[in-house]
Amino acid sequence: MSIPHLFRCPISLDIFTDPVTLCTGQTYDRPCIERWLAAGHRTCPVTMQPLGDAALVPNRTLRHLIERWLSADHQISDATTPAAAAATSDDNAEEPSLAALKRCLQSGAGSGAKVAALKKGVALASESDVGRACMLQLGFLPVLLQLVFHAPTTRDLSEQEGLALQCALTLLPSSPASPQHGCLNMLKTEASLTSFVGLLARGPAAAKAGLCRLLETIATAAATRDLALAAAASPRVWQALLPLLRHDDERVSVAAVRAVAAICCAAEPARGSAVHHGAVPALLGCLAWASAGKGRGAAAWSALAALEALAASEAGRRAVARDPGAVRSLVRHVFMMSSSNEGSEHAVAALLAVCRESRAARTEAAAAGLVTQVLLLLQSQCGTRAKTRARSLLKMFKSM
């Protein structure tokens, strides 16, 4: 497709997915300009004018024009890569347009036709940035989610549902502020949530990892805050999610612990629900499991991040302090995560919160060799925040 110049972000040169305008009048794609501002820049990337106000104003007019343009029957063959072309070749048949693919997925067409359309969509979304952006703008994400979570089921994931989930995960925007995440709120319905939990419990490993990624997005996106709290309050979600923390497939275990960490970091009600449904012993078990095996550093790091978030609440601190061996486990991870001490900051922060309010926890931590571990950490190349928290922990134990 020949994309009009005005429909391309001046930073990424890809079609806009969420156009926002700065005070200078220049429009950028939200994820791109957020990365620019997060890097410390305080100028407009195009004009280099100083930004007195860094507010991002949604450009709804431009977004509407792009949606109208995408709704036209543009052919997608030029947007696909050779791999995508091989996946979609069809006895000299004319390549369909994006609009035609979407109509097929929304229609009452048979499973075979929808599977073929989904294979085209997966190839396009995975291998073409332009194709992915166009599909996102044209509204493929809610259509794909509907295909996955259309009704509660006791059977295994079908090929159609698996492809729809794969394509939906590829289309998920990276920015937590993206309004595109709003379509995930369809999971608020009882039928959709039941379908989600069923697939999380019984689906194949790839689907379980994908659903955990979806849950992490729900917990972090601004548009799905209420859904995140509803999911955190659901016993069924925790019953399906917590056993995945020590799944044989590393993709699943890492995705599951990241989802739990995201929920625990979401809001105070979510932390309370996590504690109530047994997240603390499950995370400590995951931490021991991850530390015992090679290549599980990501799972251990996320488990420590979740424990730090839980320790920020009174219920979480009590749960950690009551769990046999919890304090000792955290002490062991103050300086044993990796050569770069990744995760040490979370272990120190969790200990700081728990030991501040529990004399028994302080006694246990001291007996476990906390002071030695902290001194070793302070001599390492750990980050500034980790060192600051480590010094605070030392001051707390000075009288002991």
Rank of each mutant, 00 (worst) to 15 (best):
Glu161Ala: 15
Gln180Gly: 13
Pro173Met: 04
Ala125Lys: 03
Leu171Pro: 02
Asp156His: 13
Ala109Thr: 04
Leu171Tyr: 03
Ala116Thr: 14
Ala109Leu: 03
Asn185Ser: 10
Gln180Ala: 13
Gln180Ile: 00
Ser128Thr: 11
Ala151Ile: 04
Gln137His: 08
Leu141Met: 12
Leu147Arg: 12
Leu138Ala: 14
Thr154His: 08
Asn185Trp: 00
Gly182Leu: 06
Gln180Val: 00
Ser174Thr: 04
Gln146Cys: 10
Pro176Glu: 06
Gly110Phe: 06
Met135Gly: 09
Ala117Cys: 09
Thr170Leu: 15
Ser126Glu: 15
Asp129Val: 06
Leu145His: 09
Ala100Gly: 09
Leu147His: 03
Val143Lys: 14
Ala113Asp: 13
Gln180His: 14
Leu101Gly: 10
Gln160Gly: 03
Leu165Cys: 14
Gln106Ala: 11
Ser178Asp: 14
Leu101Phe: 08
Gly162Leu: 05
His181Trp: 01
Leu184Val: 00
Leu138Gly: 05
Leu172Ile: 01
Arg103His: 05
Ala133Thr: 02
Phe149Gly: 02
Val122Thr: 04
Leu145Pro: 03
Gln180Trp: 01
Ser128Pro: 07
Leu124Arg: 10
Ser111Tyr: 00
Val148Arg: 10
Leu184Phe: 00
Ser111Asn: 05
Ala123Phe: 02
Arg103Val: 02
Leu101Trp: 07
Leu136Ala: 14
Ala133Phe: 00
Arg103Ser: 11
Ala133His: 12
Leu105Val: 06
Thr170Tyr: 07
Lys120Ala: 14
Val143Met: 05
Glu159Met: 07
Leu163Gly: 05
Thr154Leu: 11
Val143Trp: 03
Gly182Trp: 01
Lys120Asn: 09
Leu101Tyr: 08
